[in-house]
Design a protein around this nucleic acid. Sequence first.
DNA 1: CGGGCATTCATGGGATAGCATGGGTTAATA
DNA 2: TATTAACCCATGCTATCCCATGAATGCCCG
Lengths: 165, 165
Amino acid sequence: MDRFVSTFTNKIDAKGRVSVPASFRAVLERDGYAGGIYCYPSLDAPALDCGGERLAKKIDGLLAGLPDYSDERDELSVALYGDVQVLSIDGDGRIVLPEGLRAHASLDAAVTFVGLGDKFQMWEPLRFEKRRAEARNKVQITRKLFGAGKPLISDDDSGNGGARE
Amino acid sequence: MDRFVSTFTNKIDAKGRVSVPASFRAVLERDGYAGGIYCYPSLDAPALDCGGERLAKKIDGLLAGLPDYSDERDELSVALYGDVQVLSIDGDGRIVLPEGLRAHASLDAAVTFVGLGDKFQMWEPLRFEKRRAEARNKVQITRKLFGAGKPLISDDDSGNGGARE
DNA sequence: CGGGCATTCATGGGATAGCATGGGTTAATA
DNA sequence: TATTAACCCATGCTATCCCATGAATGCCCG
């Protein structure tokens, strides 16, 4: 497995810890795990974006293109590096969410991990459900536009809230 | 870890001391720590720029690009080297901020350390919050203008955005 | 084919070490 | 000698580590 896929919902315990889904951890290790996952507030969603070394390099790559001491660079640096947190994973595969990140995504009792290929997001479970429903709608519309045939997902709501496999 | 990442806020005590975040100290040591951190007023922000050997070399590099005895070079030399202070770190990982530097950044009761990759900045906490908000805004706009070359964040998490390499 | 055993994970709690912070004491300087 | 900066120690908090529990899955053997 080398991509983050599917969604999992885990609890936040009294100490603020959450288990990172085992399958995601496996991906991180393959990605050149360097002791922590990179995590920052999504710019346009109440969620957190996370990833491993590959994501970190992407950020570096963006900045590398800009000249030192330019305004652009400064702003991007602040927006990216400044908000990035490196969350270390403990022996049991858990991370602790700092207050700032928790606030941005309104994370409280549980977290939904959403695989997005080469990164993943962390959502407040209810919010994600809403978002997922919207997304599904859009897909349906798109499918109609394309004249695609049968729905991939039947309309029984088998995809319910459980999120666990 | 070999980059300065994420932000920390620490207090200034009665003697004017501040703890440098432990993770930043780790980066400094890896960077070839030579007994102190280089620190000078940011040219375009009410903040201080700090770093280790790598930063010092970068300054050298900038100046090397300009012809000797040019006005530009003189100005830049003064602007950069002139105000540089080498702050030594005590046994407990703390530094003392000289009056001049404190004044430039309006540092008073606390300091926010902002990791920016190969250097970090020290801000008055409230000012930094404002700055961060601005930066996020601008980045969002920039991203939209450019059609976001590589979106670190997909606009639409329904899919695929992140899946691409 | 089915029942029981072993393994993997998520989760909870207790112990411990690291870190930020405050204060006191000694050394350097004018 | 007075003042300031460097050093050392003490404290409380929080993150980190370690172990225990329990559920779920998969495997082996009857």
